[in-house]
Design a protein around this nucleic acid. Structure first.
Lengths: 232, 232, 232, 232
DNA sequence: AATGAATGAGCCTTCATTCAT
DNA sequence: GATGAATGAAGGCTCATTCAT
């Protein structure tokens, strides 16, 4: 995990300096991008090196040369996604938006939904992450530690400011409730598409849904005595 | 799909009358049960016929004999799950519980969470359904039509009674919000387990979470002007 | 190692009784024979499953079905060779031959050389064993324990009777000397063939060489004070 | 084979004069040494160019550049080994030792055993040669001609002086007997290590074994009428 | 009604080799 | 004089499926 834009996996020593992955579109970068796409679409086990290389226009042995094996490629794809994703961080958006916690929640939910909803090419990051969250892979620990936890803690901080009387467990459960409302549009998208044929999930609709989730949650969080369980 | 307790796929003619799947535990039924377990655990693509037959104590050719091929087995497993699941229907539970819509919602959420949370043997039905909802498989249409839609409509009916002023889109989105709050505990369980190590998801905690989701949602739904979008 | 004429590697339970490997020439037996040949010729690493299956007239997946993987096939081939080889045991031949230790040594060497020298089809056993002795494989422990050690001990017993004054180390080293004289005709056969173009290693010549080794060794063993080292 | 310290295989022209391989330790020499080590340890087929280059601290394309391909590298390694080995020739040692044929045999055997027994770094020559003798490789003819035959003839000369009455075939077979006694400690070392756990094969023990083989063989050769075969 | 045996496609990986600097 | 990148051919193994009882 320490190698970021690393040298080929097999070459021993004497690694020449490599430019960042955005500069040129060498085989390594095309592989990362193609692999992200395929991993996001098919999942780790179901994705095949052959298709990744085919999409990247590379030979089938290119993955072995540049990353060593499939698992390492996967981990590097996750890391690559994280690096790209940080430019588009819900938590940061929320922090920049305003000091009003309600506005911060609104910004958080909107950004989260936008990242999830996009179907376009360059945005396989969120799909991949959501998939990794659902099925525990080799990189789950890394994803949770550096990807999920910071966002969750930012959300919990917002919730505490929204209603300081909430117990710790309640804060956690409210955070789960909010994230859950967003994630269903990703996890259950095929079902929702059949259930509600009018669903488009274009930019406008995503904004509307984000607004719904925000108001829905604000109303609920405002209520004092939520949970029926312990307040630890 | 029309064959319910059908004759073996290959042996034309000579089919003796077959009893229902609950009576004896012939190979066919053991295969259905084992397949449900494995499909729920590993997913369709990742599940192997070998493991299914091993768990069922059957020969490796048994699937081909009884169901023809893997896909047909999967569809029959889904159908089997639906037949079994109806005895444990959140919507029915809600209808039986009370005429008070808030109590109905409480019953709906609790039953839904209980079916999802159980990791035990006999309850692979819900896990399988949730998996099918997440990744569109061959049987998705069937699942949606006869499994998901009725429950969703029951939930929407409850919501309309809770707040008659909600527009149709708002009802849909509130339903999604409620189901989303529940499903996250299934889809993102590995992540939540790392995020909140105290999470047990045993019967008691599931009841608490269900209560949280119920109150959270009741508060939100009670508010009149939810969505920012169209009310169509 | 416990399965001797075992059921297919994957089939769980309910193993029907299998006839001995000499009765019919099913795929499993043809695989064992072809694998013995190829392993003896090319060595474990260099032998390919593809060639084994091609020689056996079987599909490439047959090895996986019958033995599980390449290593297990190898171990079973070794075991198979041992079972076949016991009918042709130098130690037994020596014991049966006579009570005169010199005659026993003569029988031992002759039988050993005959097993090594044969180039014919059914006799890949000795070649395989010699190869396994040279390059430590997975089955080496098994080979040593049940194949090599008994013969060596029989030989050492003969030597002790030939010259009771030999120390234990001397007995061991004499045994090595005798076996070494035999094995060179196997291990270095390509070199000897170039060095001595007249070498045929047919039955008659093998008998002559065996007689040479016998007399050579009898003369040496008869001398009392052999080794320069410890007599422990 | 004519190129001894040749120019790079690919770069035609522009070849600067190259110093002998003992002067500097350029890439070419480090490759030869590393390749010798690896070939001796793993054998030709099993050795990989990657490991050779890794041990030599060279690029993976270095072998192609300096030698053309793997087989050519192997042949050059064999030739290199011969050049180095001549400094340590059992036959020469024997000739230098004394004029007494028994002493010559003693020197021959001791030197041979010492070269074989050493497991250390600088002595992969003998291990490589023994391996090439066992499994016929591309360079076998060369090895036999310039490496094995001279030693064998020196040994045969010693034997003829030890017992002039020996026929030509007997001389050959005695030579084989002596060499076989030595080689078993190399070819069957893994087995012997299991059979006799006390075996160390350190310098002292090698000397003892050499002495054993010498006395064993002297006793045998002294006997007049050895072989039972033709005396041609 | 059910089974053991066999099949061919496809997977990930490793290898020696070549190309363009 | 030497290198990093890229290639295609196997290799072992797993899989769903079919055949002949």
């Amino acid at each position: 995990m320490s190698r970021t834009a690393a040298a080929p996996a097999r070459a021993a020593g004497k690694t020449s300096a490599r430019v960042a992955e955005s500069a040129d579109h060498g085989t390594r970068e095309r592989l990362l991008d193609a692999a992200g796409e395929v991993f996001a679409d098919r999942g780790y086990e179901q994705a095949t090196i052959r298709e990744i290389c085919r999409r990247a226009g590379a030979n089938i042995a290119a993955v072995s040369y540049h990353f060593g094996d499939k698992k390492t490629l996967y981990i590097e794809v996750i890391a690559f996604a994280h690096r790209c994703a940080d430019e588009y961080d819900p938590a940061r958006e929320a922090a920049n938006a305003a000091s009003d916690p309600a506005e911060r929640l609104r910004a958080f939910v909107l950004t989260f939904m936008q990242r999830i909803g996009h179907k376009g090419r360059p945005a396989w990051h969120a799909r991949l992450m959501a998939r990794e969250m659902a099925s525990p892979g080799a990189a789950l620990d890394h994803v949770v530690r550096s990807g999920v936890r910071p966002k969750f803690e930012a959300l919990q901080a917002i919730l505490r400011r929204l209603n300081p009387r909430l117990g710790e467990r309640q804060v956690e459960r409210c955070a789960c409730s909010i994230v859950g409302q967003c994630l269903i549009y990703h996890h259950a998208r095929p079902v929702l598409a059949r259930l509600f044929p009018h669903l488009r999930l274009d930019d406008r609709e995503i904004a509307q849904i984000a607004e719904h989730i925000t108001r829905f949650s604000l109303s609920a969080v405002a209520q004092a005595h939520l949970g029926g369980g312990d307040r630890s």
